[in-house]
Amino acid sequence: MPDDNLSLTAKREAAVAALADVPREPGAKKPDPILVADDVKRHFGGLLAVDVDHVEVQRGAITALIGPNGAGKTTFFNLLTGFDRANSGSWTFNGRSLHGTPPFKVARAGMVRTFQLTKALSKLTVIENMRLGATGQRGESFWRAMLPFTWRGQEDAITERAEELLARFKLDTKRDDFAGSLSGGQRKLLEMARALMVGPELVMLDEPMAGVNPALTQSLLQHVANLREQGMTVLFIEHDMDMVRDIADWVVVMGQGRILAEGPPETVMSDHKVIDAYLGAHHDQSLAELEEQLETGTLAEEVAAELGQAPAEAVPVEHTGETKDGR
């Protein structure tokens, strides 16, 4: 069973132990945060897509960022990595502020991301994709590029490292194929391996399991878990809660742009706010009950409140709280 060797490593135990005393509440302080974000907001017209008050990501742990579609997970990722600009807010990586930093500098700082729609560079071979990931290449400067002897040695070292990674991700047989000829799952693997070529401290994976053949999902999860074993911190987005249970040490739940809940997978899965966010606040009520409410007029009030407030202000937490109380 892959689950067993996933759960029994020392690194995982250390990560779980470190997070044991952290309160299970949104914005909880972590003992050793690698990434700290405060008051991050992003509007798209009238829609407040991201409105994160405070979140910390524990170093050396696998943190899953989950939430229903449209919760703002990817937008939050884009803001943190500089691919999109926040309207306000600040965040630090390893204590260094990254607000307003362009994406390439974010990556060089050690925070490397992948994309939901896999970005394999189709017309480059697999090995070229990998080599591209290495940083500080001498041959990437215009003048030295024309003098192969200045970068040949470094290129060989990079190739060797790339081949090791390819072997680990079982892509070594595809070494000289165009990346565009790979299957969806192989592209995900390639993108992950390529991100590792940068030598990141924090790997940010945007839905690494999306569009991947279920047979490959376990092996992908294993690869994600291995990143922690090699001392990296992982933050990954997923909208399927079952996927994260096996490997995540800590789960952050987003809904309508806000952090709804935090905690270890077991705690979070049973959190009523999380269930409400995924299934709707009325999922466990029978139609008869709803009808009753409709007659008494309470449901109409709720609907009116929802319609009136929904677009401009994100009020999911308070709102779902209210309905819960009203039941």
């Binding site: 691919f83 390439f104 990556a107 992948t114 970005k119 940083t135």
Partner: peptide, 10 residues
């Protein structure tokens, strides 16, 4: 091929 991918690699 994809400039965002290249950006994400630093």
């Amino acid at each position: 091929e994809d400039e965002d991918a290249v950006r994400s690699l630093g």
